[in-house]
Design a protein around this nucleic acid. Structure first.
Lengths: 323, 323
DNA sequence: GTGAAAGCGCTAACAC
DNA sequence: GTGTTAGCGCTTTCAC
């Protein structure tokens, strides 16, 4: 026991946990002893009483998709400021795994959970939000118990479509992500943006996995069905890059024969051939905001049932040469 | 208590932990009750006795560097097979943070730690290996208490140099990573490989941060010092890509004016302009092997002091058009 | 094959 | 401002 070293017993506890009722001198003495003996409080015993641990959960569908590491970096940086460790859950957008991640996090007494949930229905998420602070990323939610931090996909989609249309394109296709059930949000944004220009794009949306291969496959499907397509808008940069690849294999030049525009602006996209025109979002800031929003949830007691926080992060067009 | 549901008390414990001394019937009844009541064992209480938790730690220097997520994906997949969660530590190659990660992991009673340690000296790593199963990635280590799974950097470097030399290059520069203290390993491999061709490259190695910007900066420095350079070998694909960018800004064509070759073969590298010639390694498998090696460490009791495991993963040249 | 008792190392509540 | 007591929910002996 550190008791032997200093003088007291769980005065140590008082010192370590910064409870007011302790004299500066005693506290200093304890801290010295702690440092000298290399004492480490047992996190299990502590958790047993407090039912909390200094951990925050980050839920993503595929850590190998470079989009997520970028926001993860923001989550790490923000977590570090708070003295939290971060446990990451890779769900592959599977409903059970998304749920399992959340269950584990409440078991752990985590400080909160943030992440991308593509499969869990809104009501279930709301249920979890009652057990721990939860902030959902990139999803349109209506349940008042849920807080969200999303890139402005609707605005970004409008920007992309406007840009393409202003470039003379009318036969524009969209490569949508086929994972989870959140699909419609983005598809709707696209169809809507097209409708503003008097264009009916409801039949020009084709889905695929949100990665390079999925983008390529979706592009082939799109062109087979609508050979007149002169521009494609990707759900993300990965799909857009896959489109470029597929287009070339089909013998169509980019952007000459068909323009391509992405979403996210991965660091790499500017190095692509051709450099990808895309909708930029600040991924690091997204991660930071996700955990910062956790702070705002806490004071209320539980999951912010009172006033859900809904943050929309601005995005902007980055013109390069693919469109 | 689940006791009320079933019949007994910590017969529940026996059932849950699969201890032999229990009748199949009782066990089934308990499991049913557990499922019905949605009972979740308290991990803190359990950890208090066992001093273990089903967690594995992954230590990386920068999760936003796309190399790490690729191996992380392998770590996740392997961890999932074992029912482990993974907590990731982002160290920025800082010695204290590398140590803090390991300290936290032993506090947590983690099943093990794997990762990239660039700053912690070998002896300190060995110290930690006595407290938990530890597998170090991509580093040449001599301490018998330490196990390692590394991509074959020496072999890959030879391959790259041989390839460049066979292409007629003699003035070859290397862009080395400036993080951590493991620098010399790779630099040495390069100088050595060059020496085999009778080339003295000791003055052609320039360091930078192991990312796009670092590669660009290092390249500018290299060319300023050795204008005759006709080929550069990057520590990783990121630096190589940065080199391509810098070269172009300097008005030198790639590979016409200067060839570039990378290391790792990130998924993106084939989409780069020009597609990057590089040394390929199986990053997913690297992650899988890292945690699999943890299994091999466990039986021995502690950190495998008896027989250190040293795995070298094969790499191969992928010819594209940058070199 | 199953129950009973002890104790892991903390923090909270209360006495001093 | 500091010491004492109790108990968090498990797993581990040890009886039976």
């Amino acid at each position: 026991m550190a008791k032997a070293a200093g003088v007291s017993r769980q005065t140590v506890s008082r010192a370590l946990n910064d409870l007011g009722e302790i004299s500066p001198g005693t506290r200093a003495r304890v801290m010295d002893a702690v440092a000298a003996l290399g004492y480490r409080p047992n996190m299990f015993a502590r958790g047993m009483k407090t039912r909390r641990s200094d951990v925050v959960g980050l839920v993503v569908s595929d850590i190998a998709n470079p989009f997520y590491p970028s926001v993860a970096r923001g989550v790490f940086d923000a977590a570090r400021e708070r003295g939290w460790n971060v446990v990451i859950y890779n769900t592959d957008a599977d409903r059970d795994r998304e749920a399992a991640a959340l269950v584990d996090l409440v078991d752990r007494g985590a400080q909160g959970a943030v992440g991308f949930f593509y499969a869990l229905p809104e009501e279930e998420l709301a249920g979890f939000a009652a057990s721990l602070p939860l902030v959902v990323a990139d999803r349109r939610l209506t349940n008042p118990a849920l807080s969200v931090v999303s890139a402005d996909f609707v605005g970004g989609t409008e920007t992309a479509v406007d840009y393409l249309v202003s470039g003379g394109h009318r036969e524009i296709g969209m490569l949508d992500s086929g994972v989870g059930l959140a699909v419609d949000e983005r598809r709707d944004a696209f169809v809507e943006a097209m409708a503003r220009h008097g264009l009916d794009a409801s039949a020009s949306v084709v889905v695929g996995s949100p990665d390079l291969a999925g983008g390529a496959a979706a592009t082939r499907a799109l062109l087979a069905e609508r050979p007149g397509t002169t521009a494609v808008f990707g759900f993300n940069d990965l799909m857009a890059l896959g489109a470029v690849r597929a287009l070339r294999e089909l013998g169509v030049a980019v952007p000459g024969g068909c323009a391509v525009i992405g979403f996210d602006d991965l660091e790499f996209s500017q190095y692509a051939d051709p450099p990808l025109t895309t909708i930029h979002s600040d991924k690091h800031e997204h991660g930071v905001l996700l955990v910062r929003t956790l702070d705002d949830l806490r004071p209320d007691g539980k999951g912010g049932a009172a006033a859900p926080i809904r943050i929309s992060m601005p995005v902007r067009l980055v013109r390069r040469t693919s469109a």
